[in-house]
Design a protein around this nucleic acid. Structure first.
Lengths: 199, 199
DNA sequence: ATATAAAACGACCGGTCGTGCTTTTCAAGC
DNA sequence: GCTTGAAAAGCACGACCGGTCGTTTTATAT
């Protein structure tokens, strides 16, 4: 058999953990709840991980893998420049539905939870977030060198602002249940892009 | 005596609760931990509130009161227009230190926690966040009618984008520990303001 | 100084948490 | 068909959770 029974189960656990963590956060994700959802005993589930912290880290890794699949990789298939930036942005807005994460982006939830809680999970999250910012900055650089954006555009500043718009969208859409959130976010994105295009 | 002993204690509890909630979140803020911090018995503390949820709601209210004191009120003392907007922005960035909240803005932490958890605390938070966005929008409108900003500027859109920058700053400063976060946020703010000024 | 009301206490409830240790189930290789 | 090792279950643990209760201490008003 290509994949053992254990790996299958592990896979199912992490998928479910990702969905649950998006709703309850990494801390709110408890072994008992997760086991009940999977119709598994708590100890049977626990045996797959050395600790709760390891489960959290692996859940973040799973989220990152899915994120690459449904956001980064497809966006890199888009033409370099503005289209690629737009693809990154649009796919980011959709990605909680694509995975799926019923509770919104797990990274946003984890960011607020872990920003004051040192440990392996926090370290991993910081790493992943830095990678994501770097991915955006790289796309900006590509757009710049091919003349789509002005040479004076600061890729890191652009990445910061684009990421801020994403956070603003998440906040407005999920907490405030603002139906116009996507529209506002798109308007902000277009303004950001336009400013980076001309003077 | 003007204020009873009970009110004093209550006051001390809520101040400490606010600080703790900024680090641990509203859910992570436990009665036991809070009581231990205040050198109070858990039951003695609990007697001041009908339930944990009520404590959470009152903590949010306390946060809102402090926020008005250290952010909104002083900013409203600044001249209408761009200076007032800048004051709102700058004071927002400082307010976790002003209150103090060792763990960053309690509203940001609560937003991620509560966006999928229905209840009184969530309802109150949504209310407060809407008020905050409205406060920004009102300041934008004032700046607009006195000719500081273009007439075509959408106050709600401006508020959305300014708020997004704040969230981006909080993320970069607290989670990523990016020393340049404040600089990036200020640059984003100035760009937003400049775009709303001229065509 | 005393009566009364407010406030704080300590013990305890049922429940859930993460985490070990031991046993049973079960699928694969001979 | 039996063996064997992985996978899951069972069970128990200590800690802590929010919350209740009856009692004791402390503050307030007469």
């Amino acid at each position: 058999m290509a994949v053992s029974k254990g790996e299958q189960t592990r896979d199912a656990i992490l998928d479910r953990a990702l969905g649950l963590a998006s709703q309850l956060g990494l801390e709110g994700l408890t072994l008992g709840r997760l086991a009940a959802d999977l119709e598994l005993s708590k100890s049977g589930l626990f045996a797959h991980f050395g600790s709760k912290e390891e489960l959290q880290v692996e859940t973040l890794d799973r989220a990152a893998a899915r994120f690459t699949e449904v956001v980064v990789a497809p966006a890199l298939a888009a033409p370099r420049g503005a289209p690629r930036l737009r693809a990154l942005f649009e796919r980011w807005m959709q990605w909680p539905q694509l995975v799926p994460q019923p509770g919104g982006c797990v990274f946003v939830a984890a960011a607020a939870e872990l920003d004051d809680r040192p440990g392996a999970a926090r370290d991993r999250l910081v790493e992943l977030e830095r990678e994501w910012l770097a991915t955006i900055a790289t796309a900006v650089r590509a757009a710049r060198t091919q003349g789509d954006l002005r040479a004076a555009v600061d890729p890191e500043q652009f990445a910061f602002e684009l990421h801020a718009i994403m956070l603003g969208y998440h906040h407005a859409a999920r907490l405030l249940a603002d139906a116009g959130a996507a529209g506002r976010a798109r308007a902000a994105f277009e303004r950001l892009l336009a400013a980076a295009r001309r003077g």
